[in-house]
Amino acid sequence: MFVRTASERDLVAIRVLLVETWHATYDAIYGAAKVTEISDEWHSIASLKARLTRPNSEFLVADDGNRVGGMAFAAATTTDAKIILLNQLYVHPDCQRRGIGQALLEEVEASFPEARTLRVEVEEANAPAVAFYRAQGFLPAGNTADCGGGSGLPALIFEKVIG
């Protein structure tokens, strides 16, 4: 798979990837109904489309020409352009453990040359994600009671010094 900038023609495939990955990852944690509710809001075509034009952001897909196997979205925080929030990094369960997440993360880092900190919020019960970010050099930096802003779900905050 190669990493490239997402476009409007990718949005349906990205939504499918996110819905399937979220159900595979979070049904056992939150229940299928809650996952569907969150996906319908966060992963709607309209929500994804809005990210394509967001200033100071990068929206990426990992694509092999036949399918989108992974995606990432990151944006500079509104308070400090040197802090980048990795809002999403998801790899379809069928494509995990092939270096796709690492390739997406590396491209996110390269997309913000002025940045000094990359921050991500991770569900504590998502042990594979916690292990992935730790392996990529992220360190614990606190927690939040409202992952993603508006979810009301708690999450760990990890940060990595970059640049």
Rank of each mutant, 00 (worst) to 15 (best):
Met1Asp: 13
Val3Leu: 04
Val3Ala: 08
Arg4Gln: 04
Thr5Ile: 12
Ser7Lys: 09
Ser7Thr: 15
Glu8Trp: 08
Arg9His: 13
Asp10Trp: 01
Asp10Ser: 02
Asp10His: 00
Leu11Trp: 00
Leu11Pro: 02
Val12Ser: 10
Arg15Val: 00
Val16Asp: 12
Val19Asn: 10
Thr21Asp: 02
Thr21Pro: 01
Trp22Lys: 06
Trp22Ser: 08
His23Met: 10
Ala24Lys: 02
Thr25Lys: 04
Tyr26Gly: 06
Ala28Cys: 12
Ile29Val: 14
Tyr30Asp: 14
Gly31Pro: 03
Lys34Arg: 15
Thr36Cys: 12
Thr36Trp: 03
Glu37Thr: 11
Glu37Val: 06
Ile38Val: 15
Ile38Phe: 11
Trp42His: 06
Ser44Gln: 00
Ser44Lys: 07
Ile45Phe: 07
Ala46Ser: 11
Ala46Arg: 07
Ala46Cys: 06
Leu48Pro: 05
Lys49Trp: 02
Lys49His: 08
Leu52His: 05
Thr53Ala: 10
Pro55Lys: 09
Leu60Ser: 04
Val61Ile: 09
Val61Phe: 05
Ala62Leu: 01
Ala62Pro: 02
Asn66Met: 12
Arg67Pro: 11
Val68Gly: 10
Val68Phe: 07
Gly69Ile: 09
Gly70Leu: 02
Gly70Cys: 00
Met71Ala: 09
Ala72Val: 08
Ala72Ser: 11
Phe73Leu: 03
Ala74Glu: 09
Ala76Gln: 14
Thr77Gly: 07
Thr78Glu: 15
Thr79Lys: 08
Asp80Tyr: 07
Asp80Leu: 08
Ala81Thr: 13
Lys82Glu: 14
Lys82Trp: 07
Ile83Ala: 08
Ile83Gln: 08
Ile84Gln: 03
Ile84Asn: 10
Leu85Gln: 01
Asn87Pro: 03
Asn87Met: 02
Gln88Tyr: 04
Leu89Glu: 05
Val91Ile: 10
Cys95Gly: 08
Gln96Trp: 10
Gln96Phe: 06
Gln96Ala: 11
Arg98Ser: 14
Gly99Trp: 07
Ala103Trp: 07
Leu104Thr: 09
Leu105Gln: 03
Glu106Arg: 14
Glu107Asn: 11
Glu107Val: 10
Glu107Phe: 01
Glu109Asn: 02
Ala110Tyr: 12
Phe112His: 01
Phe112Met: 07
Phe112Asp: 02
Thr117Glu: 11
Thr117Lys: 14
Leu118Arg: 06
Arg119Asp: 11
Val120Pro: 00
Val120Met: 07
Glu121His: 12
Val122Lys: 02
Glu123Pro: 10
Glu123His: 15
Glu123Tyr: 13
Glu124Ala: 15
Ala125Gly: 13
Asn126His: 06
Ala127His: 15
Pro128Lys: 05
Ala129Tyr: 00
Ala129Trp: 01
Ala131His: 12
Ala131Arg: 11
Phe132Gln: 00
Phe132His: 06
Tyr133Glu: 10
Tyr133Gly: 08
Gln136Gly: 08
Gln136Val: 08
Gln136Thr: 05
Gln136Pro: 09
Leu139Asn: 07
Gly142Tyr: 00
Gly142Leu: 01
Gly142Asp: 04
Asn143Asp: 10
Thr144Ser: 05
Thr144His: 04
Thr144Met: 04
Thr144Gln: 00
Ala145Ile: 03
Ala145Leu: 10
Asp146Glu: 09
Gly148Trp: 01
Gly150Leu: 10
Gly152Ala: 13
Gly152Lys: 12
Gly152Asp: 13
Pro154Asp: 12
Ala155Gln: 09
Ala155Leu: 03
Ala155Asn: 01
Ile157Phe: 03
Ile157Tyr: 01
Lys160Pro: 01
